[in-house]
Design a protein around this nucleic acid. Structure first.
Length: 297
DNA sequence: CAGAGATCCTGCAAGC
DNA sequence: TGCTTGCAGGATCTCT
């Protein structure tokens, strides 16, 4: 269930422990993990071999590293990128030599400097995956397949006025919009509920009714929730392990809304509610977060 | 074309 | 006890 803060922690870990290293061999143990690589598992592995990884980058929940010539000592960029998405349960780990294979190990990447450990992609539910893409057409070298992903609210170039205009234009509800990665990226179900609770907005509030001020407050709360999670999770990456654990590492103690059904609202004391929503759940306070009037739209 | 809903996948928990 | 069912969820696909 990694959202932006968790992915950013992984990015930092990759940048520290994988960037700049040369790949000796790659091995795909489950084809579904590379299903977004059109040419298949063998091509994926062959194209990585002998290549050097560049600095780790991120947009929203996507991560990528430019892949270059081993001999090229500067930018490590000759036109393609290793793209990763963790899905729901994906982990990118740097494991020391001799570490037994994880049960859900999907992809192994060994480096020429084997002492530094190997990179592993472990993913129980296989919603995540790795792939290789041409891409440095854009100034930032954004892989083409994620060109539709919007900037995230921690990105200095995130444009709040543009986001607000998009919300006003849409005929949808606010939580759907928060989860729409083409409008704002990096927000998942958990932090959407957290930010809406802080902003005292009901998840079914039509986006077209939001004022400029409400949008600003909502974005501010999204940013706060992410920064708080980052401050907490960012402290745990300082080891040989690049690790995201959907359960324990999830900053659970900081959650005010998600998973708190029947527990008292931390603001007003009313019992929190859970409602089915889009094949999942929305957690909210029925007193602080009033549902929109049916006539409003 | 925009928006809503289904779908993929696995392990765990709850219920009969 | 052992089976079935439900749930979790990001991104993508399909349908209206």
């Amino acid at each position: 269930m990694p959202e932006l803060p968790e992915v950013e922690v992984v990015r930092r870990g990759l940048d520290r422990w994988a960037s700049g290293r040369t790949i000796a061999a790659a091995e795909v143990l489950h084809p579904r993990a590379v299903r977004r690589h059109p040419a298949g598992p063998l091509d994926f592995a062959a194209r990585l071999t002998g290549r050097r990884l560049g600095p780790a980058r991120r947009r929203g929940k996507y991560l990528w590293l430019p892949v270059g010539d081993a001999a090229d000592t500067d930018t490590a960029d000759d036109g393609f990128a290793l793209l990763a998405h963790l899905g729901m349960s994906g982990q990118l780990l740097i494991q020391p030599p001799g570490t037994p294979d994880e049960r859900h190990l999907r992809i192994r990447v060994a480096f020429e400097d084997a002492d530094g450990g190997e990179l592993r992609f472990v993913d129980q539910r296989t919603f995540g995956g790795l792939s290789l893409h041409p891409g440095d057409t854009a100034a930032e070298g954004l892989p083409d397949v994620i060109a539709h992903i919007a900037r995230d609210p921690l990105d200095p170039a995130f444009d709040e006025a543009v986001f607000h205009a998009a919300l006003r234009r849409r005929r949808t509800t606010v939580k759907r919009a928060l989860l729409d990665q083409s409008l704002i990226s990096g927000v998942g179900n958990i932090y959407a509920d957290e930010a809406l609770w802080r902003a005292r907005l009901h998840y079914e509030r039509p986006t077209a009714t939001l004022t400029r001020k409400q949008t600003a407050e909502l974005v501010g709360h999204v940013r706060d929730v992410m920064n708080a999670a980052l401050a907490e999770g960012g402290t745990s990456f300082d080891s040989l392990y690049v690790n995201v654990n959907g359960e324990s590492g999830y900053f659970a103690r900081a959650l005010d809304a998600y998973g708190r059904e029947d527990e008292p609202c931390r603001r007003c004391g009313a019992p929190m509610r859970r409602s089915p929503w889009m094949n999942r759940s929305s957690y909210y306070c029925p007193r602080c977060q009033r549902p929109p009037r049916p006539s409003a739209r």
